[in-house]
Write a protein that binds this DNA or RNA. Structure first.
Lengths: 265, 265
DNA sequence: ACCAATTTGTCCGTATGTATG
DNA sequence: TCATACATACGGACAAATTGG
């Protein structure tokens, strides 16, 4: 392979850089992705059948199928009920789930999660208080009413999750909304545990939600931020009271609670 | 398909739920993923050859390959130089790129990006000031020295990016580190534009970095947060001075600047 | 409600290039 | 250097599901 130094007639001048030839299936995926990102294929557009793509790209069907798998996984292409290929917008949920999974595999600690959530949820609550509409307020009131009526820990924890997702939606900031989700998914199981083991946790939780709702009603971002901080501080105290260590990494088992089953569907 | 109401002898009791039968290639991917998430396969472990997997799962090569593509894309499995399959940890970079892409496709505005970054970068700077080691300080000093020496806009913008990535690393918080990246990737091109069109931007930028470094030296989180806020406010002023609208969605073209080319490698 | 055409999921066999020992 | 193992890619095939008349 290499030029022999002893061979005087052949001298390698290093004129050419190594060609980076991507496998065919990647090129198929990249070609389709480029068309989507350039706007030439819009979400909702049909992508044609596998046979069409075989014709257009001039490669084997297996190759096309491998390429499509990549795009399906990244969320840019989806199959509808009839399995036809459509261009689609990547879903927030899927991305958040993947990020959560990566965080667990990288063994992040609860302290890291908490610190990040403290910052994000505070900013989100402030923005929500600025922008909450009467309809938003009604939704929050409904959530709190349900929580007041709920008795099961499971239901209460779900409603807490809903409340914060609602506040994030009300913030009208999709970057913050997406950024908070991974940590939120990993917090979910801990809240159930805290409610189970710390008697006052339920009351404190509900009170904080009421105060945050009130701040939204009055369009008072400062109050919303303050009560969110207290809310997060409560979580931390409950976590420690329940005998957990803040510097322990999030356990793998937490992944099972977040519906990773459908990750490839 | 449906039971006929007129047919008295056949009554649908809805006893059985529809069977959710996943395609074989998905089942292959999920089976391997479960083993990884359960810790039975650790990062670095070999996954066996495709022929091995064909034997174990009892399906065709093509089916195995489609399944593996899913796992490769999600980052749980990688191929080394020799194309052998290894279990691996999903890389932060890849995830951040995907999230950025989704944000652009969802047409988020610069205001959303800025608001999120304001919150995240502030928290990151505070944590970095608390935890910066002498080695960290040295790296920051080096970065600032390079920026003082740099003349090209391109180089300056890159160094700014490096500075903030460095601060994020110093924060020792991988959740914050990962959360900031998507917005950071989308900001990158704007800074170059601002430096080009707003005369004082370069000086203000450098001054803020110096103040943040100083706060890290003194382990003064409050000062770090304050100067990060001013830094972000500067960006916003520069952005508007350069004639851009904060409520415009991030343009698609921004994706090209972030090396999406290698998304499938 | 049935039938014909289309399309996907899966399988088989084979050829070729490349990395490793 | 050579042989071997392996991944990539190809062509062809068939059954089941779906579509559209």
């Amino acid at each position: 392979m290499h030029a022999r130094l002893s061979d005087k007639r052949i001298i390698m001048h290093e004129t050419f850089a190594r060609l980076e030839i991507a496998p065919a299936y990647q090129q198929v995926a990249e070609a389709i992705e480029r068309k989507i990102l350039a706007g030439q294929l819009a979400p909702g557009d049909r992508l044609g059948t596998e046979a069409d793509l075989v014709r257009q790209f001039g490669v084997n069907r297996s190759t096309v199928r491998e390429g499509i798998r990549l795009l399906e996984q990244s969320g840019l292409v989806r199959r509808d009920q009839s399995r036809r290929l459509y261009v689609s917008l990547p879903r927030y949920n899927r991305l958040a789930t993947r990020v959560s999974r990566a965080l667990v595999l990288h063994q992040v600690t609860f302290r890291e999660l908490w610190e990040a959530s403290m910052s994000l949820e505070t900013a989100i609550a402030g923005a929500a208080a600025e922008r909450a509409s009467p309809e938003d307020i009604a939704e929050l009131e409904d959530n709190i009413a349900r929580m007041e009526a709920a008795v099961e820990l499971h239901a209460i924890a779900d409603l807490d999750n809903d409340f914060h997702a609602l506040i994030a939606r009300i913030s009208r900031n999709r970057v913050l909304q997406l950024a908070r989700e991974p940590a939120s998914l990993l917090f979910a199981p801990t809240l159930k545990m805290i409610l189970d083991q710390v008697a006052v946790a339920g009351r404190r939780n509900l009170e904080a939600h009421r105060k945050i709702l009130d701040a939204c009603r009055r369009h008072d971002p400062e109050a919303a931020r303050l009560w969110t901080q207290r809310h997060m501080a409560d979580w931390r105290r409950g976590f420690e009271k329940a005998g957990k260590q803040l510097d322990d990494p999030v356990e793998r088992t937490y992944l099972e609670h977040m519906g990773m089953g459908g990750a490839y569907r």
